[in-house]
Nucleic acid binder design. Structure first.
Lengths: 218, 218
DNA sequence: AATAATTTTTAGCTTTGCCTAAAATAAAAA
DNA sequence: TTTTTATTTTAGGCAAAGCTAAAAATTATT
């Protein structure tokens, strides 16, 4: 696998995030990258020449199998670094994203492999997102939104969406962490908010909080 | 402290390595960086505009106090990363340099501080080189070349120069590591080679090996 | 001191990656 | 089906960083 510029890798990442294997519009990509449409047009042309994407002018851009492989390898690095930063260095899960965005561009298969071992071959990162395997396989995406359960069920938080720093702050102040278990006490028929109970008491979670918190029955 | 490009940081690093606080010639810098003189002329002009260096055309380039501060902060990161790679991930000390050269450009004070703690506040890296402190202070440069001792003395290896991969290979095959202790058995009057003795036997070290291995009496 | 050799700088060109403004195309509305 | 609106592409610029080749300055040699 050749070596790519940081900018190229960022485009690949954005493409994977927005469309996965599906085509993505110039505009969406521009917004995600934070550049103007004209810059994006050029950039994807370059990526096309390296066979990382297929471009259909005025229609959209789509990752090639090669592009997908690269995207996953970047995602693997990103999530391994996040795991390292949280598990080993004690960063908060809300702080690690920008740092991982720098670290994910470090080029060294060996480093990735050793880091993976060092972290105990993790399957999921600190947000519960699956860490792609060496060969591109994806571990399962865990859980369903809290609102999807029924009252009375015991649940365990296994994943949270990256819904911005205010969301993470709120999790923090409510002391909600991956691995926590609760009982679903009630679900409001009025606004879909949910009452969670634990040994220390119970509290209500708004519908929009619930939509970004994923759990499994347990 | 503003943010700099990788190229800029590489120039600063090279400048510090070649001249420390002293001026450096365009040619030497070009050779170190691996670029043509004309490129260097331009580059240092840019650095001058950022007050990282003072340039006297046709005479030489010299780091400003700001430049020195930056150089040390990069060196700190480089050596901390090397320590991490060797101590935590199990890389060989001969392999870590190129990787640290990528990692040293990661921008985050917080990361550096946490890494420093995580590693147990090390004063020296895996080669025994001093790791600059947060505030720019330098721990002592340890040891003197093995040839500088006299026969009969007990020594401990505390530092090795980065004299290329063949040198490291040789250390490896001779099983010489930082922390090893030996007795100086003899010093050849003919070729300045040195006979070292340990519990497992004794062996001779060429003068050029000795020149790159530093020890303290102990 | 004058010439030769070396080093450094200037001038001009290339690529990446971004920008603005204008032209072209596609999608939506009348 | 035209016309209007929105999206995308082209054209032309700019900065960083590298290059080559030629000019200028410095250093070394006769």
């Amino acid at each position: 696998m050749k070596t790519h510029t940081e900018s190229e890798e960022n485009y690949i990442k954005a493409l994977y995030h927005l469309g996965g294997e599906q085509p993505v519009s110039n505009g969406d990509l521009a917004q995600r990258i934070g550049a103007k449409g004209s810059s994006v047009t050029q950039a994807v042309k370059r990526l096309g020449q390296k066979d990382l994407v297929n471009v259909v002018p005025y229609k959209g851009v789509q990752l090639t199998p090669q592009g997908i492989r690269l995207a996953k390898s970047i995602l693997r690095k990103h999530r391994l670094w996040e795991t390292f930063l949280v598990d080993k260095l004690g960063f908060g899960w809300d702080e690690v994203h920008p740092l991982a965005e720098q670290l994910e561009h470090i080029q060294s298969e060996e480093l990735v492999d050793r880091m993976f071992q060092f972290l105990g071959s993790p399957k999921h990162d600190p947000h519960g997102d699956p860490i792609p395997e060496r060969d591109g396989q994806m571990p399962p995406v865990l859980g369903q939104p809290i609102g999807a359960f029924t009252a009375g069920v015991e649940i365990r938080i296994v994943r949270v969406e990256d819904a911005g720093s205010e969301f993470f702050d709120q999790l923090d102040t409510m002391n909600i962490n991956l691995g926590n278990t609760y009982k679903i006490r009630a679900i409001s028929a009025f606004d879909s908010s949910v009452e969670l109970g634990s040994s220390t008491g119970s509290f209500w979670l708004s519908q929009s909080m619930c939509a970004n918190i994923y759990a499994i029955q347990s």
